[in-house]
Nucleic acid binder design. Structure first.
Length: 811
RNA sequence: GGCCGAGUGGCGGAAUUGGUAUACGCGUUCGACUUAAAAUCGAAUGGAGUAAUCCAUACGGGUUCAAGUCCCGUCUCGGCUACCA
């Protein structure tokens, strides 16, 4: 008989699947399954950036998880949608173009072709008819359309904002291009430069994005990260009057606090150095020092500002009035107060806030206790930030801090100087990139700088090819160099007269953040080639939302953005659901055999295609990566263990092709294995599902396998090792319908009873299940010499646990 | 500093959620086959001890008839976050 030859059978089955379009799902409304009884399942991985290096083992792990589920559900006769796509915009292609002059368009095409070929060699059950690519005009036409929908509702807008700027390369840098405060290309320290930027108003959805996290079937880790990212805090906004300010515009300073209950303990105010009111608060005496401090802080890089944990600051020369005590308190500026959060100003309560305490100590400012900590409190720090009863707080003395938080706000509200306020750490999503290789923002400007959206019927705004891909020194992308593209004539409504006029407009040269392109691709999949809409209404109703989404990255960014877009489009009546992903699986990384991250520079990269070509084949690779450990944990590659999995598949082969069928009755282990594998796949315990199959095969080797045993084995194996399993099923003349188990086979006639004395195992014996009772077991147990030995001084208590077949005697 | 997760053989990891700790795989050792090696097949494999038995799930306590699992404290590692008022 032939030996197990993965090369041969894998090629054979890949050809068959391609020819038969085995994994094709119903495309549009006409095509959708009428049969409502067959449930649908929509599975996807986070689509990859197709780099020139091709697939790596991390991709294989990610995609195999999806594939196992897709094949498993398909074998269970469900309607499975398992598409694939490429996230192709981005810096690597652009940098490659700058270096080589090869256009990103063409490099991307080459890379996709390579990726597709490799994916096919892994035997993934992909519906290739709906392959998508974000840099395809057919696709980004609809990304631009999405942008316009947000624009129409005021959720895409422009405002001035600081951007990273490299003074040597004369270009704007994305956050990820800034490494420890330095430009990733030339190593120059980067600066912040104020520029007009596009934003999406994700903050409008902050509350819903937060509230809906609870109900998600997502890993807690991600849920917590998203909650922290949104960073909602409830508190109050309080206005402090500036003393002796007269009728000046800056008479009141607004602060945000989560502890309004401590307002009587506010002994000074601190403003962020950038705070616009600082200039009105300085006096002739302090001006020089304040100006110096402000320039120094602004000059400091973010890194320096973070490094220097010691508090710094200067007194402005002005005072504010504490609304509780009526006392005058000094106003300071310090870089520990951030302009971007709350009001950019705080009331400092040094007795009950550690940062304020530190600041007060350093500059010798008064510290006034307003909370009496409860006697039970073990906290013996000088600064107490817990709960307690108020003291030194006028009419609120004796009130609990929790109640006081409400009362203080009510009291301030009556005086018109305070109100409840909620703030978020999350900011609006900055989406403009001064990059060539991205989706053009469909906006143009007239000579006065007025914005005009490109009408939907004129989409897509195509990316023009250029000669030189370098950004120019104005901070604009290389798109600005495409002169023919840059200016054009369009009929628009004149902003003043309201009449239709033809105007010469200049296009926006910023492109969209790549995350915008990936914020809606899951919906494109349901009708990948739909010509007249981003997604087909009927198809989306049938397939979406995504049932299982698998990835290893983008815990907050991408996974928050798709939730935001989903809620937005649901509000426009374009999506019939408010959360895009039901179950999220977040898989771990695969590290090099030494446990370190794989990297080209370290030379420790394992190429999955090499593993296949070494002779192991795709089935071994897939099965190994599922066996390597729990899917959500990082794992180190172990070349020896790959061999172990290959041996296992080889044993499956031998059992099927090289041995005679036996008549042995293996119903028990067969049914137990079906149950274990089925339940484990449902729970995503892929590693233990494979263990169970190994045990099954070991047993069949010992006692001999019947034809039925082998059919079951092949069916269970198919999601993991589809080529081998298909070959086995072909020989056995069986379909691949997922098997069910019969509980009656799992109940044995006899069971092993365990007898413990004081919790330690002292005897084991077989017993007929029908005779299993406390008395019978105890009687048998006491016949045992060992048990007698340990119970010489009598038995105080007997515990019988039927479900564990266990008797514990307390002696 | 804060929040979260983890710590089980030589290694990757199992353990029905409080009920026989160490499944499965790797490695190692022995044996079979072979002129030999590889491959394959079979057996053994937490530690100590001749043995009965004892000791082992990071460490120290506790709850319980019974703890890897629950509670309290300590240590170590990993992730995220970083003056967010």
């Amino acid at each position: 008989m032939d030996r197990y030859n993965p090369q041969e059978i894998e090629k054979k089955w890949q050809k068959i699947w391609e020819k038969d379009q085995t994994f094709r799902a119903a495309e549009d409304s006409k095509d959708l399954p009428k049969d409502k009884k067959t449930p649908k399942v929509f599975l996807a991985e986070m689509f990859p950036y197709p780099s020139g290096a091709g697939l790596h083992v991390g991709h294989v792990r990610n995609f195999t998880i999806v594939d196992v589920l897709a094949r498993f559900y398909k074998q269970q006769q469900m309607n499975v949608l398992r598409p694939f796509g490429y996230d192709t915009f981005g810096l690597p292609a652009e940098n490659y173009a700058i270096k080589t002059g090869i256009s990103p368009q063409s490099a991307t095409k080459t890379n996709i072709n390579n990726f597709r070929k490799q994916l096919k060699r892994l035997g993934f059950a992909i519906d290739w008819s709906r392959e998508i690519n974000t840099s395809d005009p057919e696709y980004y036409k609809w990304t631009q359309w999405c942008f316009l929908q947000l624009y129409k509702k005021g959720l895409a807008y422009r405002k001035e904002s600081y951007q990273w700027w490299c003074p040597v390369d004369q270009t704007v840098l994305a956050n990820e291009q800034v490494e420890n405060g330095h430009c990733w290309r030339c190593g120059t320290e980067v600066e912040k430069k104020k520029m007009k930027q596009w934003f999406f108003k994700i903050t409008d959805y902050a509350d819903e994005l937060l509230a809906d996290i609870d109900a998600l079937d997502w890993p807690d880790k991600i849920k917590t990260m998203q909650r922290n990212w949104i960073g909602r805090s409830e508190g109050a906004e309080i206005s402090f009057e500036v003393a002796d300010a007269g009728d000046a515009a800056s008479k009141m300073i607004k602060v945000f606090t989560t502890r309004p209950d401590t307002v009587f303990g506010a002994t000074f105010l601190v403003l962020a150095p950038e705070h616009p009111m600082v200039k009105d608060l300085v006096t002739d005496d302090t001006r020089e020092k304040v100006d110096k401090y402000r320039t120094e802080t602004l000059k400091k890089s973010e890194i320096e500002r973070q490094e220097n944990k010691e508090k710094t600051g200067v007194f402005t020369g002005s005072y504010a009035i504490n609304p509780g005590t009526g006392e005058q308190i000094p106003i300071w500026i310090s870089d520990y107060v951030l302009m971007g959060y709350g009001e950019g100003a705080i009331m400092a309560v040094p007795a009950h806030d550690e940062r304020d305490f530190e600041f007060a100590k350093k500059f010798d400012l008064p510290i006034k206790k307003v909370i009496e900590k409860p006697e039970s409190s073990k906290d013996d720090d000088e600064c107490y930030n817990g709960e307690g009863k108020l003291v030194n707080s006028g009419h609120l003395n004796g009130t609990d801090t929790s109640a006081a938080r409400e009362l203080v706000v009510e009291w301030l509200e009556k005086q018109g100087i305070g109100s409840k306020k909620v703030t978020y750490k999350m900011r609006d999503w900055l989406i403009s990139r001064q990059r060539y290789w991205g989706c053009p923002i469909p906006i143009a400007y007239d000579e006065d700088g007025n914005e005009y959206p490109i009408p939907e019927d004129q989409l897509p705004v195509i990316i023009p090819e250029v000669e030189d891909y370098k950004p120019d020194n104005s901070g604009r992308s290389a798109l600005a160099k495409a002169k023919d593209w840059l200016t054009f004539e369009m009929e628009v409504e004149d902003k003043k007269t309201g009449k239709k006029v033809k105007k010469t407009l200049t296009r926006e040269t910023d492109t969209l953040d790549g995350y915008a392109c990936s914020s809606w691709y899951l919906w494109r999949y349901v009708s990948a080639h739909c010509k007249d809409a981003a997604w087909d209404k009927e198809a989306i109703k049938y397939w979406a939302p995504t049932d299982v989404y698998v990835g290893a990255d983008h815990a907050v960014a991408h996974l928050l953005y798709i939730r935001f877009w989903c809620k937005f489009f649901a509000d426009q009546g374009l999506l019939p659901f408010r959360e895009p992903v039901k179950t999220l699986l977040y898989n771990g990384y695969i590290n090099a055999p030494d446990g370190k991250k794989m990297s080209k520079s370290k030379g420790n990269v394992i190429d999955p295609l090499d593993v296949i070509d070494q002779g192991y084949g795709a089935d071994t690779l897939r099965t190994y990566e599922m066996f390597i450990g729990p899917y959500d944990l990082d794992a180190a590659w172990d070349p020896k263990s790959v061999g172990g999995v290959y041996r296992f598949l080889n044993r499956c082969w031998t059992l099927c092709f090289d041995k005679k069928f036996e008549k042995h009755d293996n119903a028990r282990i067969r049914n137990a294995t079906i149950k274990k594998v089925t339940e484990d796949i449902h729970k995503h315990n892929f590693n233990t599902a494979i263990s169970a199959m190994m045990e099954y095969v070991n047993e069949l080797y010992k006692v001999g396998a019947t034809e039925e045993d082998l059919i079951i084995l092949a069916k269970l194996l198919k999601p993991f090792a589809p080529h081998l399993a298909s070959e086995m099923l072909e020989k056995l003349g069986s379909d691949d319908v997922w098997p069910t188990w019969d509980e009656k086979h799992l109940v044995a006639d006899t069971v092993e009873v365990v007898v413990q004395v004081n919790g330690k195992v002292r005897a084991k014996f077989e017993m007929n299940k029908s005779e299993l009772s406390e008395e019978n077991v105890k009687k048998r147990a006491l016949e045992d010499k060992n048990v007698q030995n340990f119970t010489k001084n009598g038995i105080k208590k007997t515990i019988f646990v039927e479900k564990a077949n266990l008797l514990n005697l307390v002696a």
